[in-house]
Design a protein around this nucleic acid. Structure first.
Ligand code: FES
Ligand code: FES
Lengths: 153, 153
DNA sequence: GTATTTTAAGATAAAAGGGTCTCATAAACT
DNA sequence: AGTTTATGAGACCCTTTTATCTTAAAATAC
């Protein structure tokens, strides 16, 4: 798989937050219910994103999680790097150490090109952009439900 | 990681075979030594490729493994599909079931495009092509050694 | 200050991927 | 035929990822 499950959950949760009112703290329990992700597992992932300064948390009643920056200021790449790290975008396709530093492998040129296109896609796509699209076309963030599930509280 | 370790080992081994004399059976033990892959693990992977009709095996003394078709007739995609299956090229970037069949996710359009570029790269690259390049520039198939390690018996 | 709501942190368990080992099978040579 | 060389097939183990559970800590409301 391109992205780890943790990373995918992180992306789904971030999109969910970006789709809600800016400034509103959303409890993790609510997110885990809506997005059909295990509460405890999601909690851990959100902790990583909070530690990286992408999300912000608040404890106690009326607490929860929200975006720290605006959705248009968070690129998919930020989330992928925070959770999966940079391996996908730096590693050798044949698993050899030091891609780009040492003598390359036969696949290097072609892979570097493909890898750059992945990098560019992640770097140039922000949350708000996807949320607009998702709202307009009622796309899904979960197995069944459309984007509208985010709003029926 | 884009490709599983098994898949990467399968690719390295296939490149090794394509670089050797067509028709020569190479013992797995020799390959595992040259390519620095565990013998038993490599054996399993090669069995998969043999079952898929990409490689051919022969038991007993002077036996081993060789390509069943010519190197120019084996695309990287064949090996990736045989070992990792088609998930990478068919799955939803957000891990939702039924990408392309059901209502898409917000990332679908962008991911489908990126995914196609991966698909195209794997589909249009054959073993012989990479072997030529590898021989000409003495590229590496292993941590340290160059392509020449394939030939000092 | 006590109860309630919520995140934080860490221990633990289940599942998957990666890797090892053993025995069986086939072919060749003597 | 028996020994040697080699793949085939399966059981087994280790590590990482994924997921769960338990306890702590913080903030609020009363
Ligand atoms: S060295 Fe293999 S992809 Fe760069
Ligand atoms: S539905 Fe998500 S990538 Fe196609």
């Amino acid at each position: 798989m391109l992205l780890s499950k943790s990373c995918v959950y992180g992306l789904r949760a971030s999109l969910y937050l970006a789709a809600r009112e800016q400034g509103e703290f959303v409890p993790i329990r609510k997110m885990s219910d809506k997005l059909e992700i295990s509460f405890h597992f999601l909690t851990k992932i959100l902790q990583q994103l909070t530690a990286e300064g992408i999300l912000e948390s608040f404890k106690g009643p009326n607490g929860g999680i929200r975006l720290k920056r605006t959705g248009s200021d968070v690129q998919l790449l930020d989330i992928v790097l925070a959770i999966d790290g940079s391996q996908l975008l730096t590693e050798c396709a044949l698993g050899l150490p030091g891609c780009g530093l040492k003598n390359p492998c036969p696949l290097h040129d072609k892979w570097a090109e493909t890898r750059d296109s992945i990098h560019e896609m992640l770097e140039k796509t922000n949350l708000t952009e996807l949320v607009h699209k998702g709202k307009a076309e009622n796309l899904r963030l979960t197995t069944e439900g459309g984007f509208d599930i985010l709003f029926d509280d």
